[in-house]
Simulated assay, not measured.
Amino acid sequence: MPYLELTLRCSETTQPRYENALEDVGALAVTMLDAEADTSNERAILEPGVGETPLWNELVLSALFPADANPLVLLAALEAFDEGLDWSDASFRKVEDEDWERAWLDTFKPMSFGRRTWIVPWNHELPEDAQGADAAIVRLDPGLAFGSGTHPTTALCLRWLDQLADEGRLAGQTVLDFGCGSGILALAALKLGAAAAVGVDNDPQAIIATSDNAERNGVSIACYLPEDEPVHSYPVVVANILASALDALAEVLAERVAVGGRIALSGILHGQEDELLVRYAPWFEQLNVTQDGDWMRIDGVRRA
């Protein structure tokens, strides 16, 4: 059957309120895209950091309702749900019946990171370049709430892991993915030769997603909420969250890295890196900064 689609632009701060309102009045699905991105580009897929949605300043929200829904009645219900939201720019259109989930997945293509790492959706054949004997293949479908590799913050971490593997620093090691989301970084580490991986996230849905993705990829990831996490030190730690969280968790993350171990910090906007370099300097040396568009990655080695 056809659907009624509501589309609205909103800001980073108001997005959760709009989404809650849409779901409360019966939206069948809510998707979020970067308002400044070309929606034909894979980078338009939402990848929020742990505890943060979204990563962009402005988004386009699209919600699907049954075709017979009355737009005026919907607007009245939405305005009543949260009187502080502005629905004056909302637009409606009828859309034809199609497999919306499949159409969404079709925007997600195989992607390579570094020399060996590939993220390939389940509905795609392996690209020819990904069929080498040493290729590290992670099968993953995009999600609205978790990482799929399309955002620069995730890409920066995937390339870092790929480089560690090339340097022989990943084989046989245990990796901590702090703020694991979909588990994409832990999965990539395992496919690149890590012996074990641990995922930590404060969102229970992320724990479910990571466990499910690990099972589908034929590997195992020990997943924990922060309050349940056994505290260990690891030779490799990656934290793809946001700068504010990285600042607040500096001591926690430093404690998780073994002496001589390596850490990668991502989710940092250009201009936020200097403060974090100072913040992490007491525990880490050989601190490097790598940039991808507006986003930065910091990596370093744990001091003795």
Rank of each mutant, 00 (worst) to 15 (best):
L4K: 08
T13F: 08
R17L: 14
R17K: 12
Y18G: 07
N20V: 00
A27N: 09
A29S: 15
D34A: 05
L46F: 09
P54I: 05
E58R: 14
L59E: 12
L64P: 12
P66H: 11
D68L: 12
N70K: 10
L78F: 09
E83A: 14
S88K: 13
D89M: 09
D97E: 15
D99M: 07
D99G: 07
D99K: 07
R102C: 02
T107K: 14
G114S: 00
V120M: 04
N123S: 14
G132K: 13
A133R: 14
D134Y: 03
I137D: 06
D141P: 02
P142V: 01
G149V: 02
T153Q: 06
T154M: 06
A155S: 14
Q163P: 00
A165M: 06
D166A: 14
E167I: 03
A189F: 07
A197C: 10
D203C: 09
I207M: 10
E215W: 02
S220P: 00
A222S: 13
E229T: 09
P230G: 03
H232P: 00
A239V: 08
A239W: 07
S244V: 07
S244H: 00
A245Q: 12
A248P: 00
A248W: 02
L249R: 02
A250S: 14
A250R: 12
L253P: 13
L253S: 12
A254Y: 05
I263E: 01
G271V: 01
E273R: 05
V278W: 03
P282K: 10
P282M: 10
W283M: 11
N288Q: 15
T290D: 12
D292Q: 12
R297I: 01
I298D: 10
D299T: 07
G300D: 08
